[in-house]
Design a protein around this nucleic acid. Structure first.
Lengths: 107, 107
DNA sequence: AATTTATTTAACTGATACGTTAATTAACGA
DNA sequence: TCGTTAATTAACGTATCAGTTAAATAAATT
């Protein structure tokens, strides 16, 4: 099961966020190429990848001596889904304006 | 400036996620009422609220001796925006199916 | 078979995170 | 004004996190 807090926690680290961003931008790629996102040793990146894997955010495919990583679409979709669950809250400029004004009056 | 990794990091903790969920469900409320989300001391909740505030996820309004907390719409919207930036990646059942099959063949 | 390449796992270290209780601050009601 | 209520800040302990270097694993190359 994908836990939403695990997804948020995994993306909360700048290095891991950079890894996911690179994967989304350039597509699936081996662990070695992901090392460029930060000035950091290979083992450090490898452990970040494990955390992303455990969270269900990325998938690992073995290809020879390389491990090809890719973002799991359902994971990003889960985050999107969470925001949509509360869409009425943050959507709508009129409501937001009214809420802001009301908030301002109270303060 | 709201940093997306700060938002993710803030929501990555189960207690803080529960706080935000309660605020979204029941609307703005004082710190004291948020204590019920976890079996935890008031100071612990207070520090979680500070982290949420620093991340820009919640807003604090002073009302007498109470501090009324509410979720900042723009913060949830920012997360929504991030998922939409990569919408083409995770959207579309046909593409997802093809990608999954292709992935399966390679494995 | 020996070596190089790609990546992970192991062992260790310092910093940060998260909880506790005690003390502080400030508003409210008697 | 004094005691209560609401919340935060201070001080502290422990656990987890994130980095390092060294060692291990396994595929590719010579």
């Amino acid at each position: 099961m994908i836990e939403i807090t695990h997804l948020f926690s995994a993306l909360g680290d700048p290095t891991r966020f950079a890894i996911v961003t690179k994967l989304l931008r350039d597509g699936a790629q081996p662990a070695g190429q992901l090392q460029s996102v930060a000035e950091m040793s290979a083992p450090a990146i490898s452990r970040h990848l494990k955390i992303l894997r455990d969270a269900g955010l990325v998938h690992q495919r073995v290809a020879g001596q390389s491990r090809i990583y890719s973002v799991v679409p359902a994971a990003v979709q889960a985050i999107h889904g969470w925001t949509m669950d509360h869409e009425t809250f943050w959507t709508g400029s009129l409501e937001r304006l009214e809420a802001a004004l009301e908030e301002h009056d109270k303060s």
